[in-house]
């Protein structure tokens, strides 16, 4: 399938900022499931530099906007040829040892609720069955409910609440996988939305679990499935913060507002 992505993130500042600096992970890498045909990241008045591919295979670059700056709009446009690999990540260059993804982070730290949830998995650990079971467990326990959680909520908080969006479900899935000894990570990307998909945001998040026999395999608890040709994988990390497509800072005081527009379309 050929997917066309348009994604804009616009910031506007109440008072002009002295400087804006952002670290971007907005550009996908090739794998068996996706071939990047065209991709661009642009912003008026910004300079881009310090680009590299990190050990996890993420393409990182740095954007700076000199002040005074009233606002900035980051525009992403791209075309990707996708294929269905049943969620299995193949042909992706990376060098981080999978057990590194057993590390706890602040957002995915284990709590009693997470331990109890993890204990419910019955299939032998490390198997595809166990992974599916975990994914279903999260989908059953955390009802997809927009607007109830904050961006900085931890997995333990979310379990207690029993509700959340894709970020929350994904962090819970990661946390319980790690508790049960399965390396897991947070993935951000795009999803071609249809009638049956949950979450109308085309910008999406899901988890990847490392299974000894298959390697990294994606699981999307929000849609109770493994990523297929409708998905574009962009960035991965230990949790939502670590994998964030944009991490930035704008120096100066005053209110800041952000507007995100994403569209993903299949080319006929």
């Amino acid at each position: 399938m050929r997917l066309i992505v348009e994604h804009s993130t616009s910031y506007s500042f109440e008072a002009p900022r002295k400087r804006v600096v952002q670290s971007h992970r907005l550009t996908p890498s090739d794998s068996a499931a996706q071939t990047i045909r065209a991709w661009s990241v642009a912003a008026d008045g910004a300079s881009f530099g310090a680009a590299f591919v990190d050990g996890a295979g993420n393409r990182v670059s740095t954007m700076t906007v000199p002040g005074p700056v009233d606002g900035v709009a980051v525009l992403v446009r791209g075309e990707v040829e996708t294929a269905d690999t049943a969620g299995v990540l193949r042909g992706h260059r990376e060098t981080v040892a999978p057990p590194v993804y057993l590390r706890e982070t602040w957002a995915t730290a284990a709590g009693i609720g997470l331990h109890e949830l993890g204990a419910q998995v019955s299939a032998p650990l490390g198997t595809l069955d166990a992974a599916h079971e975990m994914c279903a467990l999260v989908a059953d326990t955390i009802a997809y409910t927009p607007g109830v959680t904050e961006a900085d909520m931890t997995a333990a908080d979310v379990v207690e609440l029993g509700q959340g969006v894709c970020q929350d479900q994904t962090q819970v899935l990661i946390a319980i996988a790690r508790i049960r000894g399965t390396p897991a990570r947070y993935v951000t990307g795009y999803l071609l939305a249809g009638d049956e998909t949950v979450g109308d945001e085309a910008s999406h998040a899901w988890a990847e679990l490392y299974l000894p026999d298959l390697g990294w395999v994606g699981f999307d608890p929000a849609n109770r499935c493994c990523p297929d040709a409708r998905y574009i994988r962009v960035s991965s990390g230990l949790d939502a913060l670590d994998a964030a497509p944009i991490r930035g800072i704008s120096l100066g005081a005053g209110e800041e507002s952000m507007d995100i527009q994403v569209s993903v379309a299949a080319q006929q």
Binding site: G55, V96, A97, P99
Partner: peptide, 17 residues
């Protein structure tokens, strides 16, 4: 490996740097 990978001072961000 566990002693290294799960060590707080190990930085996944600089793997390959």
């Amino acid at each position: 490996g566990d002693l290294i990978w799960r060590n707080e001072a190990f930085e996944p961000a600089v793997v390959g740097t």
